[in-house]
Design a binder for these strands. Structure first.
Length: 427
RNA sequence: GGUGGGGUGGCAGAGUGGUCGAAUGCGGCGGUCUUGAAAACCGUUGAGUGUUAAAGCUCCUAGGGUUCGAAUCCCUACCCCACCGCCA
C-alpha cells in the first residue's frame, strides 16, 4: 500500500503517476473521507482523553474513601458519545482502508507509457533463435514423442490445465529445478528456503494478492481460510512480516522452489494446448529484502540472476520492461524475460522480476533498524522467477529438438541427468 | 482425539480490576573509572500515530463482551507447552 502521508500531501502527483497505469484515483472521494476522518478522529481522541481522566479521578476518589456516586453520574453521557464517536471513526477508517488498499503502487521513473503488453519495450536480446532445416514440433508432440508428457492422464486424474510427466521428461524437469537452485545458492549468494504451500489470509494480504485478487487463488475448504500459494513470493516474503532486522544483516536473499497454484479464472481459451498455462506448475523464486536506496540496483542484479539461467541453458531470450499499463498491482517496475519458442515463432514470458519498493513491506510491517538513527524503517522487497520450471522445460524441449524427435540435453543439465545426453524418441 | 497449563517490551519474567505502556533481571546504547579491556557504578533503552517541537491517542496474540475504569474478569478463535490415547 502507498504511504498515507504521500496521499495527504502530494495527492495530485500520486494521481498523475497512477494515471500512467490507466488507474484513475477518485480524488473527490478521497478528500471527502480524509476531511471527515480528521474531524472525527480529533473529536474521538478528545473524548477518549476526557473519559480516561474521569476514570482516573474516580479511582483516586475511591482510594481516598470519597463518595464516587456524583462522579459516576457525570460520566454517563460521556460514555455514550465516546462509543458513538469511536464507531463512527472506525467506520471511516475501514472505508479509508478499503480505498487505500485498492490503489496500486506508484510507477518508478523510466517505466514507459503504454496500455498493455503490446506496448512493453524491448531492452535487450540474447542469443539467436536456431534455424531448423526440418519442420519444428511443439512441446506437446515432442513430449509425447519421447513418452514423457501425458495430458490425457492429467485430465482423467484431475482436469484440464494439469499435466503428468514420466521418465526422462520428469527427470529433466527435476534436473532443471535442482540446477536453478544450485546456481542461485552457489553462484548468486541466495539462501535456499523451503516453505509451506498453504498460507493464511494475512500472508496473502501482506504481498498484495488480497483483498483485490482473490479470484486468482485456490482456496481450501477449511474454516481457517487457507489458500494454495500462487507463487513462493507469498510465503517467502512474509518471512519478514512483523520483523525488524538489523541493518548489518541486509540484504536478505532467499531462493525457493515450490509448486504454484493459480485458478486462471478469466483466461479461458488462452494457451489451452500444452503446459504453458497450468493450474499447477513449479517455479524457482528469487526474493530480496534490501535497504530503500539499494532496490533500484538490486532489481538489475536480480534480473541478471534469472538471465544467467537462460544463458547457461543457451536459450535465446529477450528482456522487456513492462509499460505502465502492464506493470502488476504491487510493483513499481518490472522486467520480463521472454524465451524463444520455435513452435510459436515468438518470445514467451518465462520470468518476471519486480521491485515493489515499500508497497509490500508497509502492509506487512517488514522493517530494518537504521543504525545511524536507531529507528525502524521499511525495507524494500524484490522478487523474480529464476525461472518458471515448467516453461523452461517447454523451452528446452522445443529449442533442443532434433529431426528424429529426440531431445538433446543441454550440457549444464547432463550432470543432473546421470550423464544422459538426449531423450530418445519412441518409435 | 482427551485432559491440564500457557501466550506481557530484543530475551527472560512480575503484574490484588484503578495513578500500568507495564516491576525486576539480562541484553543494547551512553558515561565514570582504566594505558587499553574486563569488572563495578551511574544514566538510558518498545512500536505506531500526531506535532516545528510537544501534548494527546492506540497497541500487553487476535476479535467480541462486562465495567466509570481491563494486561488483570467473561466468551470465541489462533498458537505454544505437558501428559494420555491413536497413527507412523
Amino acid at each position: 500500500m502507498l504511504d498515507p502521508k504521500l496521499l495527504r500531501n502530494q495527492l495530485d502527483d500520486v494521481a498523475a503517476n497512477l494515471s500512467k497505469r490507466g488507474f484513475t484515483l477518485d480524488l473527490e472521494n478521497y478528500q471527502r473521507l480524509e476531511q471527515e476522518r480528521k474531524i472525527v478522529q480529533v473529536e474521538c481522541e478528545k473524548l477518549q482523553q476526557e473519559s480516561k481522566a474521569r476514570a482516573k479521578s474516580i479511582g483516586k476518589a475511591k482510594a481516598s474513601g470519597e463518595d464516587i456516586a456524583p462522579l459516576l453520574a457525570e460520566v454517563g453521557n460521556l460514555k455514550q458519545s465516546l462509543s458513538e464517536s469511536e464507531s463512527a471513526l472506525s467506520a471511516l477508517q475501514s472505508e479509508m482502508d478499503d480505498f487505500v488498499l485498492g490503489i496500486p503502487n506508484l510507477l518508478a521513473d523510466g517505466v514507459p507509457e503504454g496500455k498493455n503488453e503490446d506496448d512493453n519495450v524491448e531492452v535487450s536480446l540474447w542469443g539467436e533463435p536456431r534455424k531448423f532445416d526440418f519442420e519444428v514440433k511443439d512441446h506437446v508432440d515432442l513430449g509425447a514423442g519421447v513418452g514423457g508428457l501425458d495430458f490425457d492422464s492429467a485430465v482423467k486424474i484431475t482436469g484440464s490445465r494439469f499435466n503428468v510427466m514420466t521418465g526422462g521428461v520428469a527427470r529433466l524437469h527435476r534436473a532443471l529445478g535442482q540446477f536453478m537452485l544450485n546456481t542461485h545458492t552457489l553462484e548468486h549468494g541466495y539462501n535456499e528456503i523451503s516453505v509451506p504451500f498453504v498460507v493464511n489470509r494475512d500472508s496473502l494480504f501482506g504481498t498484495g494478492q488480497l483483498p483485490k485478487f482473490e479470484e486468482d487463488l485456490f482456496k481450501l475448504n477449511d474454516e481457517r481460510e487457507f489458500y494454495l500459494i500462487p507463487t513462493a513470493e507469498v510465503p517467502v516474503t512474509n518471512m519478514m512480516r512483523d520483523v525488524i532486522v538489523n541493518e548489518a544483516d541486509l540484504p536478505v536473499k532467499y531462493t525457493c522452489l515450490t509448486s504454484c497454484f493459480r485458478s486462471e479464472a478469466g483466461s479461458y481459451g488462452r494457451d489451452t494446448r500444452g503446459m504453458i498455462r497450468q493450474h499447477q506448475f513449479e517455479k524457482v523464486e528469487l526474493v530480496q529484502f534490501v535497504k530503500p536506496q539499494d532496490s533500484d540496483q538490486a532489481l538489475d542484479t536480480l534480473t541478471g540472476h534469472a538471465e544467467a539461467i537462460l544463458q547457461k541453458l543457451d536459450l535465446p531470450y529477450r528482456k522487456v520492461i513492462l509499460c505502465g499499463g502492464d506493470v502488476g498491482f504491487s510493483s513499481q517496475k518490472t522486467f520480463d524475460l521472454e524465451v524463444w519458442l520455435p513452435s510459436q515463432d515468438k518470445y514467451r514470458e518465462i520470468s518476471s522480476c519486480s521491485n515493489f519498493a515499500s508497497f509490500q513491506t508497509r502492509r506487512m510491517k517488514a522493517r530494518f533498524r537504521n543504525s545511524e538513527t536507531g529507528k525502524p524503517e521499511l525495507l524494500h522487497t524484490l522478487n523474480g522467477s529464476g525461472l518458471a520450471v515448467g516453461r523452461t522445460l517447454v523451452a528446452i524441449l522445443e529449442n533442443y529438438q532434433q529431426e528424429d524427435g529426440s531431445i538433446a540435453i543441454p550440457s549444464v543439465l547432463q550432470p543432473y541427468m546421470g550423464g544422459v545426453t538426449q531423450l530418445e524418441a519412441k518409435s
